[in-house]
């Protein structure tokens, strides 16, 4: 083993044993209401149920705006993207397919793509976020066989099975969206090391997902 260069003393809080893992686990419990969310979307699709929609709005709009602001959007853009996503949900709820994804994942994709469209706004007036442009193609049947609940558990485990050092880097690069040079600055690691470790972390995550049977082996 070489000299330990990560964490630096000031970042030791990232590596309190069990801390990062524990933090993730807490979040997954919040998904318990997934079938309830799906039922509300179904009610909107079936009868344009305004009460069901208001409940979806109250659940998702505050989270989407917070997430967008964290991702670097100003508050005006965050509100605009969120409102566009909610309009899409209201008008196109029937396009949600509970056998393919959770409501949260579906809305997440719509919000992410809408935000990218807004980044090139001088070209784009309004792109319907559900145009085929942004709908991912069908995933091969491989993972359709897995029950969604089972699948979610396996995805979670594949992530938390990463060594904590890599999990911390994944958090900074993937969820917090820090650039490699930001991470180098914060951790005191050389830029090249940050880059190679992040690459390694995502390749390992992929191998974990393959081993868990969630992703077909490449």
């Amino acid at each position: 083993m070489g000299r330990a260069t990560f964490p630096t003393p000031t970042e030791a809080w990232l590596f309190v044993p069990g801390q990062v893992v524990h933090w993730y686990r807490r979040g997954f419990e919040a998904l318990a209401g997934n079938s309830e969310l799906a039922a509300w979307v179904h009610a909107v699709a079936r009868s344009r149920d305004r009460d069901a929609f208001a409940r979806l709005f109250d659940h998702f709009a505050p989270r989407l705006e917070a997430w967008l602001i964290r991702a670097g959007a100003d508050s005006g853009t965050a509100e605009e993207v969120t409102q566009d996503v909610m309009v899409t949900l209201w008008r196109k709820a029937e396009l949600f397919d509970p056998s393919k994804s959770s409501v949260t994942t579906w809305l997440y994709r719509i919000a992410r793509n809408r935000r990218i469209d807004i980044l090139r706004r001088d070209k784009v007036d309004f792109v319907d976020p559900l145009e085929p442009t942004h709908e991912p193609s069908e995933t091969p049947d491989f993972d359709q066989a897995l029950d969604m609940q089972d699948r979610e558990g396996r995805v979670r485990e594949a992530l938390t099975a990463l060594p904590e050092e890599q999990l911390a880097l994944v958090r900074l690069a993937f969820f917090d969206g820090l650039s490699h040079s930001d991470i180098a600055e914060k951790t005191g690691l050389p830029l090249g090391t940050v880059k190679s470790r992040i690459r390694l972390a995502f390749t390992r995550l992929r191998r974990n997902l393959e081993a868990a049977g969630v992703v077909e082996a490449s």
């Binding site: 998904l31 989407l64 964290r70 994942t105 993972d143 969820f175 992703v215």
Partner: peptide, 19 residues
């Protein structure tokens, strides 16, 4: 890479749910 991206999007969606 579709299956891998699906799984990564699910992880991000969980992050959104936790926000």
């Amino acid at each position: 890479n579709r299956g891998f991206v699906d799984a990564l999007e699910e992880l991000n969606a969980r992050e959104l749910e936790m926000t």
